[in-house]
Computed example of a mutant assay.
Amino acid sequence: MIPKVSSIFRRWNELISQWSQHQLGVMLICLALFTGFSLLYFPKVIQKRLDNSWTSNEKYMIDFINRKIEHPLVAMVGKDSREHFAKRELRITPYLIGKAFHLNAIRLFYLQVLLLPLFLFLFFNLIRKLAGGDAPLAFWATASILFTYVGHSFVYDTLFYDSYAYLFLLIACYYYDRIWSVLALILAFFVDERSLFPALNLPLLFLFQSGIPSGKWSDVIHDFLWKNRATHYLLISLTLFVIIRYYLYTSFQLETPVGKHAGVQLGFAFLHGYKLPNALFSALKWDIILPIIAFAYLVKQRIWASVWLYFGTYLASLIAATAVDDVTRSLTFCFPIVFVCFQIIHHLKEQESARIFLSLIFLANFLTPTYTLLMHLERITPLSWIY
């Protein structure tokens, strides 16, 4: 790095370290990130309220969501219908939140926007925990993820509420070795079923907390299944999810339809052709390098059990994402795959190099445009609420 830039970078990291000595300082850092981000990307729903530009489909969605908030367990779409919109019948977590706090569809989105600082706060603390207490590394990682679709979803996604799932997945990762993760996972699963696949990362976080596993395949599998609390909590979560889903189906006829008419079919998103790479890339943008580094390290160390689980988690997320039209939002669910990389960095004692690397990823994410694909490819541009 140029000496002057290197000096500024070092001083900035020292400042972050000083502010991060107390949780209040971390909170202020995250609020500053949120404020700067919000000035660039004004919440879409507020802009719509100002110019009253709701489409007829959005008005239909608002009416549907408001009725679901009022009666979360009542099926609003005919049970014989296989239409795409019927998928939202069983995604009841946002409706229950709305009912508990007396929020309508629009206010539920406002709450989503205000939850972004909490997401950043938890993300910062989790990265610092995984990276051995390195606050500057946590800062650059948090700023970096903010400018992927993960951050954009909180202020851009109107009436989908996927960001609630991202938040609950993050809470589950934060408490990966505690029973609290069970509740967070179930809440995430009932925002969207696509949360199931990234949840498979939790056992890896537990497995790597005391060092990179080595030894025979059978020994790693044994530890993974029998000594790994995160595995047990994940299995409990999946079991409860299946039981609750079955109960909701038999008692209230709530289900998630699949098939061509429901807009859920393997390879569905490939119909978009050349638009697909931009949409897929926007989910994590340059942060996708982090799981690639982790995967390469696991292969180099021949930790094959972890290699296949790690690779399988992302592959399952990718297959699920390309089975629906909203492929950007779908693949964003897999953001927990970045966490393993920070544990590896900690064990390799490469913090200083990692800080520089993460700051460069942040800069690349900041300068690279973000797209979302829903029927058509749409670019999310900064300051669009001004002009």
Rank of each mutant, 00 (worst) to 15 (best):
N66D: 08
S282P: 00
F311A: 11
H272A: 15
V340D: 07
A283L: 01
Y246D: 14
Y246H: 14
S282G: 01
R107H: 10
F37C: 13
S384P: 11
V327W: 10
M27F: 15
P3A: 07
P213T: 08
Y60K: 15
L24K: 03
A199D: 05
E352S: 03
P257N: 02
A184C: 02
V155K: 11
E193A: 14
S38D: 12
Y110G: 10
W54P: 00
F366M: 01
H347A: 04
N278A: 11
L318Y: 00
S6H: 09
D63Y: 12
F9W: 09
G211Y: 01
N13A: 02
N125A: 07
T322A: 14
T142C: 07
C334R: 08
T250R: 06
I289L: 14
E83C: 07
Y371M: 01
K275P: 01
S7K: 12
I289M: 08
I236C: 06
G263M: 00
I69Y: 13
F208W: 00
L50D: 12
T256P: 03
W54N: 07
D177R: 04
I186C: 05
M76P: 06
L234N: 05
L137Y: 03
F208Q: 14
K285V: 15
F206W: 15
L116N: 07
L24Q: 12
P136L: 14
R178M: 10
G312D: 14
L185D: 00
L266A: 13
P369A: 00
A320E: 14
Y314N: 12
Y314E: 13
E14P: 00
S153V: 06
L187V: 07
A354T: 04
L318I: 08
F224A: 03
T93M: 07
D326R: 03
D63C: 11
D162H: 09
T35Y: 08
Y246V: 08
S20K: 02
N13G: 01
F34Q: 11
H272I: 01
A354F: 06
R67G: 06
T313C: 04
S81T: 02
Y164H: 06
T256S: 07
Q112P: 10
W12F: 13
L183I: 09
W385E: 09
N365W: 06
Y149I: 05
F268W: 12
D162V: 09
N365K: 05
L187I: 09
I8N: 06
S214R: 10
L238A: 14
Q253L: 12
L167P: 04
G267Y: 03
